[in-house]
C-alpha cells in the first residue's frame, strides 16, 4: 500500500464515520435529556433533516467544484438573495399577467438565469483580470448585496403563489422536493467531476494550473463555467427555498458562504484545490445539519450550535494535519 493511502481512506470515510457517531450520540443522549418523547432517529425527523440541508447543500456542490478548481466563491449568499427576489417579484410583473400559473416556470428560469449571469460576471473578472477569486468574490459579495438592496430598499419582497407552494411542499416517493433537488444535484455534480472531461480538467487545473495551461486546457473559460455553475446552484437553492416561504428579506443568505465553505471543508476538499469529493461534501452538509438538529434535540441552546461547529471545524483541521504529519522526519520550517 502506498504511503498516504491509509490517511487518504480515513479522510474519505471520516465524515461518514462522524455522522454515524453523531447519530449514536444524539440518540443515546436524547434518551436521557430529550424533552420530547420522539426518538432522534425518527423517519420524519430524518426526512426533515435532509430537506433542511438542501439550501446549503445545493450551493455546497457548486462550491466543491469551484474549490477543487482552485478558486472560492464568497458571493453565493448575495446571489442566493438576488435570485430569490427575481423569482418572487417576476411573478407579479404585468407582462406575465396573462400567463396564469404558467408564470412559474418563467419566474424560475429568470431566477436561475440571474444566478448564471452573476456567476458569469465573477468568472469573467477572474479570467480576464487575473485577480484572485477570493478578492473578486469578496467584492461581489458586497456588490451583489448592494443590488439586492437597490431592488426593494430595506423592504422584504414577498409573493406567495399557492400552486408554487404546493409544488414545493410535495413529497414524491416520500422525499421532499428540496431533498430531491439536493440529491439530483449531488449525483449530477458527482458524474461531472468523476466521469467528464470537464470534471477531470477541473481537478487538473486546481492541482497544477501551469501544467493545465501548458497542456492547452483553456483555463479561463473553464473557470468561468464553474462560476456560472455555482451561480446557477445558488439560484436553484433560492428557487427551492423561496417557492415555499414566499418572502425574502434583503439580508437573507448572509453568512451562507461561510456555512457552505464549512461544509465543503468538513467534507475534506482541499483549500488549495486539486482534491475533494462531491459525495464527501454531502456528508459535510448532513453532518452540520445533524449537529444543529441534534443539539436542539438534546435541549442544548441554539447558540451552542455555533460554538460546536466552529470547534469541530478547527478539530477536523487539526486531525487532518496530525494524520498527514511525518513525525520526526519533518523539517521544522
Amino acid at each position: 500500500m502506498a504511503p498516504g493511502t491509509l490517511s487518504g481512506l480515513l479522510q474519505k470515510g471520516a465524515i461518514w464515520g462522524f455522522i454515524v457517531l453523531e447519530l449514536i450520540f444524539f440518540s443515546v443522549a436524547g434518551e436521557f435529556l430529550s424533552l420530547s418523547d420522539k426518538a432522534f432517529m425518527d423517519l420524519d425527523n430524518m426526512l426533515l433533516l435532509l430537506k433542511q440541508s438542501a439550501p446549503i447543500g445545493i450551493i455546497a456542490m457548486g462550491m466543491t467544484i469551484v474549490m477543487i478548481n482552485g478558486n472560492i466563491d464568497l458571493s453565493v449568499g448575495a446571489t442566493f438573495a438576488l435570485a430569490a427576489i427575481v423569482l418572487l417579484d417576476s411573478m407579479t410583473w404585468p407582462i406575465f399577467a396573462g400567463l396564469g400559473d404558467g408564470v412559474i416556470p418563467v419566474a424560475m428560469a429568470l431566477a436561475l438565469l440571474t444566478g448564471i449571469v452573476l456567476g458569469a460576471i465573477n468568472g469573467f473578472i477572474v479570467w480576464k483580470t487575473g485577480v484572485d477569486a477570493f478578492i473578486v468574490t469578496l467584492g461581489a459579495m458586497l456588490g451583489y448585496r448592494g443590488l439586492v438592496f437597490m431592488y426593494n430598499g430595506e423592504q422584504p419582497t414577498s409573493h406567495l403563489n399557492w400552486t408554487l407552494v404546493d409544488l414545493a411542499e410535495a413529497q414524491p416517493l416520500g422525499l421532499h422536493v428540496a431533498t430531491w433537488a439536493l440529491l439530483i444535484v449531488t449525483v449530477l455534480a458527482w458524474l461531472v467531476m468523476t466521469r467528464t472531461v470537464h470534471g477531470r480538467n477541473a481537478y487538473a487545473i486546481g492541482d497544477n494550473r501551469e501544467a493545465a495551461v501548458n497542456a492547452g486546457i483553456r483555463v479561463g473559460p473553464h473557470m468561468m463555467l464553474n462560476f456560472m455553475g455555482i451561480g446557477f446552484l445558488a439560484a436553484l437553492s433560492a428557487v427551492v427555498f423561496y417557492s415555499e416561504s414566499g418572502s425574502v428579506n434583503p439580508n437573507d443568505g448572509e453568512l451562507y458562504e461561510l456555512w457552505v465553505i464549512t461544509a465543503v471543508v468538513l467534507g475534506g476538499t482541499k483549500l488549495t484545490g486539486g482534491a475533494g469529493s462531491v459525495i464527501s461534501t454531502l456528508g459535510g452538509v448532513i453532518a452540520i445539519q445533524l449537529l444543529r438538529k441534534g443539539l436542539g434535540h438534546i435541549g442544548a441552546d441554539t447558540e451552542t450550535v455555533n460554538l460546536v461547529i466552529g470547534l469541530i471545524l478547527i478539530a477536523v483541521l487539526f486531525l487532518d494535519r496530525q494524520l498527514n504529519i511525518k513525525g520526526k522526519e519533518a523539517l521544522k520550517a
Binding site: 487538473a204 497544477n208 493545465a212 492547452g216 486546457i217
Partner: peptide
C-alpha cells in the same frame, strides 16, 4: 497534476 492518474496526466488537455 499529482492528484490525477498517470493516464489522465499523459493525455492532459
Amino acid at each position: 497534476a499529482t492528484e490525477l492518474s498517470v493516464a489522465e496526466n499523459i493525455y492532459l488537455g
